[in-house]
Nucleic acid binder design. Structure first.
Lengths: 355, 355
DNA sequence: CTGAAAGCGCTAACAA
DNA sequence: TTGTTAGCGCTTTCAG
């Protein structure tokens, strides 16, 4: 009786739900059989061709969709990757995401995408979430200051790759560029153009490796030329304000340091902000003020003037990142690999000789 | 013996895995108890305060992370949303994604993000994938021409919202703007400036509702002014080529129709391409050629000249989209709602009177 | 106040 | 060649 009741309620409740069992019941075969056939393991199991056909036909007919959640639970693998960036609406990350998505998808992986918003707390929270969701690996830009939290939160041999930013004391796979060298080259280029009073615009939080290294590169360039740096030429802009299009900090800076003839911006948002500020202050670029920035975005070639910049190989970064994580998942254990890619200075119209 | 073997391998394999049962075993209580406590249902179940404390303490100590895949399977709900866009690297989608992500996250939902690449096949494939992954709802821009495929593939009352583009014959929730009206207004503005030979640049595939409606708006504007349209002023650019920065089609078009004094571009990529083509051909904007485009992206205010455009309320679109899908998930059943938001023409320097 | 047991949909040993 | 069964980790009746 109990049994019957169960069968009954099962049948009733499941109206419409097509599962392995429902197909099996329908065909009077076992779940195993259906599973084997639908996973292409039928031949290996030497299952009757004719039976195979019946199963396949019925599955198609019923529009069967395997429940990947159940599958994931059973197999201990979700075929999902976590992608954690600072801000998905930043073209820098959006373009890398695109590449990662494509490669991942080709390998059967989906992406759970999230933005940390440059907040350590959010990042911590999001990583936990990804881990709870049993993603098979994580690709991320960290905004952490200390390796500790990450070490605590991420299991020892978990498939992980940091990109763009590294974290001292956290020995994981990584892909990015040599920010210090790239910046140094760009600043030397400004120096070679005759500029001596060069402003350096960076962001909060300043401890982020890319920002830190770029600043280091800036200092190194001066040192290499035996030049002193006026620290009043360094400005750290508040990230939230920048996101909010509040450029007052920059305008004030430009107004207060009229001796500056060239500007180095540490990222694309900052460069656009400079353009805006200079425009409002009536400082002509490049005649009165040269500008060069880290990161290339499409529109830099169409701005007035076109903006000189340091371009990172975005596609390549995405490609390496996803491949590194996939390799770890496939247990191709390797030492944490650090991949450093080449940047390229793109000379456009926002930079010229000091006159 | 058999039993022992199993226990053994179990113990070995599970080394380190913290689960509900492992905690329960550890504490000599039942899984139920632990589950209840960890889900905040302990008080409702009137569980001993002291026991609760023990459970919570141990869970924290062991750094327990609930397996959301198991939870999802059991509860028939994954707290995951599918977001399907044409191209995540397009700032238009990236910015909407940002808003959606934030609201979804606040409600406890994660996002699986994917790009259809304007391919019907990819779209079909991705929707199937999302459904198999048991996402609780889907937010998408469709690139389908016919409603049929979507109807076949998506279950009748599945939580779904289309945004940006609608699909005739597919009666779902929707949020977007009045593309026809917006375009008509913008074109009338060009007409009012004295332009009569206006080029219209659109994309493949042309059947997409937004593109279609924009073209319709273009035609309507002329009709309203009792003006004839020279169909040689309409150009449909190949999407793949555009993505690929191959602007020859546009350059050729501009070269062959020198009588054109103003251009309407149906999206941001096209506008940038026009800028590029005009530059290479030495056609000065706006003096020789006015340009207005659908969609605003940040850099349009910094280009030379700054580009006039029709701005869509991106944040609002994202917000409405995610809320609509969340409502459906929460079974707040409503008739498929169509939300049409306001656009705004932003007048910048790329448009001027015909001289 | 607490526990046993069933079962979400699937895979994979093992049996037959 | 096919079926039985156990179990992935969790929630939730239902019994005590």
């Amino acid at each position: 009786m109990r049994f019957l009741l169960k069968r009954f309620s099962f049948a009733v409740m499941k109206a419409g739900k097509i599962t392995l069992s429902s197909i099996a019941a329908d065909l009077n075969v076992s779940k195993t059989l259906v599973s084997l056939v639908l996973n292409g393991k039928a031949d290996a199991a030497a299952i009757n061709k004719e039976t195979q056909q019946r199963v396949i036909a019925r599955a198609k007919e019923l529009n069967y969709k395997p429940n990947q959640v159940a599958r994931g639970l059973r197999m201990g693998q979700t075929n999902t990757l976590g992608l954690l960036v600072a801000d998905i609406s930043n073209p820098f990350y959006a373009r890398i995401t695109r590449t990662i998505e494509h490669i991942a998808e080709a390998e059967g992986y989906s992406l759970i995408v999230c933005s940390s918003d440059e907040s350590e707390n959010r990042e911590k929270h999001l990583i936990k979430m990804l881990l709870e969701r049993q993603v098979d690996g994580i690709i991320m830009t960290t905004t952490m200051q200390q390796a500790e939290i990450l070490k605590q939160i991420i299991p020892p041999h978990y498939p992980l790759v940091l990109f763009d930013r590294y974290l001292n004391g956290f020995d994981s796979h990584y892909v990015g560029v040599d920010n210090e060298q790239a910046t140094q080259n760009a600043v030397k280029y400004l120096l070679d153009l005759g500029h001596r009073n060069i402003g350096f615009l960076t962001l909060t939080p300043g401890y982020i490796s890319t920002l830190h290294d770029r600043q280091q590169g800036f200092l190194e360039a001066f040192k290499a030329y035996n030049l002193d740096i006026d620290t009043s030429h360094l400005l750290q802009v508040d990230y939230a304000k920048l996101k909010n299009k509040d450029y007052n900090q920059i305008k004030q800076f430009l107004a207060e340091t009229p001796q500056i003839t060239a500007l180095f911006a540490t990222n694309n948002n900052l460069a656009l902000a400079c353009l805006n500020a200079a425009m409002e202050l009536g400082r002509r670029i490049p005649d009165e003020l040269s500008l060069i920035t880290f990161d290339d975005v499409e529109c830099f070639q169409y701005t007035a003037p076109a903006i000189s910049c340091i371009a990172q190989p975005l596609e390549k970064i995405g490609e390496v990142a996803v491949n590194l994580v996939l390799q770890q998942i496939k247990k191709e254990k390797t030492e944490p690999k650090k991949v450093v890619l080449q940047t390229k200075i793109i000379y456009r119209d926002s930079t010229c000789c000091k006159n």
